[in-house]
Simulated assay, not measured.
Amino acid sequence: MHTTNYINTFIEIADDSPITTAQIPPLKGENKTAANIQFEMIIDHPYKYTSDDVLFNVYAVKNNIHKSDLKEEREKFFSKGQPCMRASALTKRYGWGVHANEEGKIALYGADSDEYKKFVKDKKLQHVKAMRSKKA
C-alpha cells in the first residue's frame, strides 16, 4: 500500500510559483477543480485529514464513486503510487504551504502569512518544496 502522507513536514510553495500571496483557487465553469476540492476540504477542517484522505476524496468526487464502494476503491487507488501535495496546484500555483503534523494531518498556510514564515524557519520540521511547474 502506497501513501502520500508526510509526518512533521512543511511543504513550501514551489520556487517558480508565479505568486507570493496565497489565492483561493478560482472556479472554472460549473465543476470544481481538484484544487477547489482540496482547498475547501483542508481550509474548512485544518488538521482533520491526511494527505491520503484529501487526494482520495478528490479522486472519488471526480469519478462519482458511490459511498458503498469507497473502501474498495481507496485500496485500489493506493495500490500504486500517487502524486502527493507537492504536486498540488495549491502549492505550485496558488501560494499555499502545507503543514503535516505528527499524526500526518494537514493544514494550509498562505505564503504571505506569519504562520507560513514561522514554519519555514522551524528546524524541527522536515522541509520539502512543492514541485516546479516548469523544468529547469
Rank of each mutant, 00 (worst) to 15 (best):
C84R: 05
G29P: 13
D52H: 06
A22L: 03
T50F: 08
T50G: 07
F10K: 05
S17T: 03
I37C: 05
L70D: 07
G29S: 09
D16M: 00
D16C: 01
Q38S: 09
P83W: 07
K28S: 11
D44L: 10
E72C: 09
L125I: 02
Q126G: 07
D52V: 04
E102P: 00
E102I: 05
T21F: 08
N63E: 14
Q126H: 07
K124S: 15
Y47F: 15
L55A: 08
A111T: 15
D114V: 14
A35Y: 03
Q82I: 02
T21A: 14
K124L: 12
A130Y: 00
K123C: 03
D52N: 13
G97K: 01
L70Q: 09
S68I: 05
A34Q: 13
K129F: 01
A34P: 12
R93Y: 05
K135I: 01
H45I: 14
L70R: 11
T33C: 05
F119N: 01
A35P: 06
Q126R: 11
T20H: 08
D52S: 10
K76I: 15
K71L: 10
K67N: 12
L55T: 05
V61L: 11
G95H: 04
K121W: 04
K105M: 08
D114C: 03
S133W: 01
S133N: 03
T21Y: 11
A130R: 04
P25T: 10
A35I: 08
E115K: 13
L90M: 01
F119K: 06
H2S: 13
A34C: 06
E103S: 11
E73P: 02
T50S: 14
K28E: 15
K123T: 15
I42Q: 01
K105H: 13
A60E: 10
E75G: 09
E115S: 11
Y47N: 12
P18L: 02
P18W: 06
Q23W: 03
V58K: 11
S88W: 03
R74F: 13
G110W: 10
F39R: 02
I106A: 11
Y6M: 03
K92V: 00
R86N: 00
I42S: 01
E75N: 13
